[in-house]
């Protein structure tokens, strides 16, 4: 992993001409990632036995849900390392093969699944995703995790929680709560995937 040294340079901040202002700008995204990184460090420290030299972070595995959860997990790990000096394990889990809506659409391409060498058994897994909506992606990720091992506990970190849950699932770390209607769509753009950082709220439901 080569993350910490190559965090994206501040991308252009002005929104696309004529479009609505973004829900989160590039600076907001950076601040939110920093805040969640701090929260993860605090929680890890409070959960670890007093005097643990790593502040409980050795126990932690950040697992991103592709597409955009994966770079988010890497960014969180880079910030945690910058703040605490401890390297944390990062992985990705593709949930496509665990989705409950495969038959509702054409066949989907798969994405990477990569777990750290040490695996997830007995560790604290924090799933990382960009948007929490129906909760179905998270359910699929929980199913995938169950096949990959037996974590001590599983938590969830998301950049945006837009509500409208269809399953009893909640996030432990939320970047921003955004009340939305079902007909709106929340688009997260990240530099690693889309060339710039921003979160947009647009009218018209999408996939």
């Amino acid at each position: 992993m080569t993350m910490s040294s190559e965090l994206p340079a501040p991308p252009p901040t002005e929104p696309a001409a004529g479009g609505p202002p973004p829900l989160l700008s590039a600076d907001d995204v950076a601040r939110v990632v920093d805040r969640i990184a701090h929260q993860l460090i605090e929680r890890a420290a409070s959960a670890s036995p007093a005097g643990a030299s790593d502040g409980g972070l050795a126990d932690l595995v950040l697992v991103g849900i592709p597409t955009r959860g994966a770079p988010l997990a890497r960014r969180l790990a880079a910030r945690i390392e910058a703040f605490s000096g401890t390297t944390v394990d990062v992985g990705t889990v593709d949930i496509t093969l665990y989705r409950d809506d495969l038959r509702l659409r054409g066949v989907r391409a798969l994405e990477d699944t990569r777990l750290p060498e040490a695996g997830v058994d007995g560790r604290l897994v924090v799933l990382v995703d960009d948007v929490l909506f129906s909760g179905r992606s998270v359910r699929a990720a929980l199913d995938a995790l169950r096949d990959l091992g037996r974590p001590r506990a599983v938590q969830l970190a998301v950049l945006v929680d837009r509500g409208h849950r269809e399953l009893p699932i909640r996030a432990d770390y939320v970047g921003k709560n955004v009340p939305t209607s079902r007909t709106q769509s929340v688009k997260v753009h990240l530099a690693e995937v889309d060339g710039l950082d921003e979160v947009l709220l647009t009218e018209g439901a999408d996939a």
Partner: peptide
């Protein structure tokens, strides 16, 4: 290429797992 890439993703998804089964 899609078939070969998909096979690679499936192999990595199952690598090192005790339960070599997917519910797909």
């Amino acid at each position: 290429t899609l078939v070969l890439d998909t096979a690679g993703q499936i192999e990595s998804a199952l690598a090192g797992r005790e339960v070599k089964k997917l519910p797909t």
